[in-house]
């Protein structure tokens, strides 16, 4: 039997979060809490791809910081937009 490794775990988590986000968006009106939850999960998804698929964890720290900053900045705007 094939080993369920780190990449498989992260892929499952990413797919699970995508389905959860869709459920939240479909089931509930976009309350501030839902928007914050979605923004946080987007940050997590971005960090997983940056660190484990792009393999920036342990690579160039400035590129990693820049990529992670991007994935904090724009999801944060989701939270800001919830207060429009």
């Amino acid at each position: 039997m094939k080993k369920f490794g780190k990449l498989e775990y992260y892929l499952s988590a990413l797919v699970g979060i995508t389905l959860l986000n869709t459920f939240l968006g479909e089931r509930f009106a976009s309350t501030t809490l839902v928007s914050i939850l979605i923004a946080l999960t987007v940050i997590y998804k971005g960090f997983v791809v940056i660190d484990h698929f792009m393999e920036l964890k342990g690579a160039n720290r400035n590129l990693r910081m820049l990529m992670r900053l991007y994935f904090v900045l724009f999801p944060s705007l989701i939270i800001v937009s919830a207060f429009y």
């Binding site: 869709t22 968006g25 009106a29 976009s30 989701i78």
Partner: peptide, 8 residues
């Protein structure tokens, strides 16, 4: 994806 399909 969340911007266009999820957030209302």
């Amino acid at each position: 994806f969340p911007l266009l399909y999820v957030l209302r």
